[in-house]
Every structure is written in C-alpha cells, then in structure tokens.
C-alpha cells in the first residue's frame, strides 16, 4: 500500500477498514448442510423458533 498516495484517494478509502487477509480466512470457517430441494451446498442451519417438545428445562433442578 505504501506505493499509493493516500492523500489523493477518495475519503471512502481514508475511512475504510483494513484487515489482514490471513485473519479473515480463519474466521470464515463455516459449516453448511445440503438440502437437495433448495439447490445450494451453502445452506446454514436455522434453529426452530420454538421448543418442539416440552420435557427438559432447567427450572426443576
């Protein structure tokens, strides 16, 4: 980056966030599942919005 004269770049560059590429790759380790009917191998799982059955909760312990 030293080669570029930052003082002549648009302000958006001055305010941009700069991160090391190596750290980004590490954080991006994600898990995906396959659902044939949706046609993508990059589907994140989604939690159900409510409990399915009502057996186990910690309030009785």
């Amino acid at each position: 980056m030293q080669l570029i004269k930052i003082e002549q770049l648009p302000l958006t560059f001055h305010k941009a966030t700069i991160t090391e590429t190596a750290t980004i790759k590490k954080a991006k380790k994600e898990h995906f599942i396959l659902i044939k009917k949706i046609g993508s191998d990059k589907i994140s799982t989604e939690k159900f919005y409510k409990p399915i059955s009502k057996i186990f909760s910690f309030d009785e312990d």
Binding site: P51, S53, K54, I55, F56, S57, F58, D59, E60, D61
Partner: peptide, 18 residues
Amino acid sequence: TKQNYISELCCGKISQKF
C-alpha cells in the same frame, strides 16, 4: 440433567423456560 425422563409421559410441561 440428573433428572430421569422415563417416557413421553414426562412431556407437556408449561414453564417460563419454554
């Protein structure tokens, strides 16, 4: 949990936890 749930008879609880 230390609780023992013997069967489906243990289901159907109503609690703020749910």
